[in-house]
């Protein structure tokens, strides 16, 4: 076991532990904050895997945007700030069994498939230059399609969020135009 392996295992333990706390804590705001810890540890894991650009995108998008959006959602739905009693549904044991079975199958497959595989990792494979030239040369068509999808989801979120348009509202902007 080399140094990067050890760091990766420690960061993975932090990520999985924070994820477990995120899905088991009784306070909804704490779940979002444990999600930040889990995503941060995963960004550290990307750095160890020499994927620098993906690590910073992870920090920017997930920790910066997605968790803030989730906190907005928590506040806007007037979730209980303190300890809430009914955040877990009744089928917790069934969910635990399904999750344990999933973990057993996946870990068994991964250990059997890649148990002793070892290869040194060279730095520089995940820099912004390499990824940028790859995105804008090979993957430029999926990139553009994805930008259209992002625009469509943005418009959809605005349409869903506004209350003065839609079938229930009379005299909206559509009727005036």
């Amino acid at each position: 076991m080399t140094g990067p392996d050890l760091v990766l295992i420690l960061l993975g333990a932090v990520a999985v532990g924070a994820g477990i706390l995120c899905v088991t804590t009784g306070q909804i705001v704490h779940a979002a904050l444990w999600l930040v810890v889990s995503f941060g540890a995963l960004a550290g894991g990307y750095l160890v895997l020499t994927a620098e650009f993906v690590a910073w995108v992870q920090v920017l998008i997930y920790v910066g945007a997605v968790v803030v959006l989730l906190l907005f959602g928590i506040m806007l739905t007037r979730a209980p700030i303190g300890r809430a009693a009914d955040v877990d549904s009744g089928n917790r044991l069934l969910a635990l069994a399904v999750a344990a079975a999933t973990a057993a199958v996946l870990v068994t497959v991964m250990v059997l498939g890649f148990g002793g595989a070892h290869k040194p990792v060279a730095a520089g494979g995940g820099s912004a230059e390499a990824l940028g030239s790859s995105v804008f040369r090979t993957w430029v068509l999926p990139f553009e399609v994805l930008s259209v999808l992002l625009l469509a989801s943005l418009v959809g979120a605005i349409v869903l969020s506004r209350s003065d348009i839609g079938p229930g509202a009379r005299g909206g902007g559509r009727d005036g135009g």
């Binding site: 990766l8 993975g12 994820g19 928590i74 069934l94 870990v107």
Partner: peptide, 30 residues
Amino acid sequence: MHIVYPTIVSALLFSVGVYGVLARRNAILV
């Protein structure tokens, strides 16, 4: 570097997510 460690971390994290989707009741926690 061993490939098995990140894949095991990934599998465990996925299982944690499966548990959260199935066990949580609040839609934002899902």
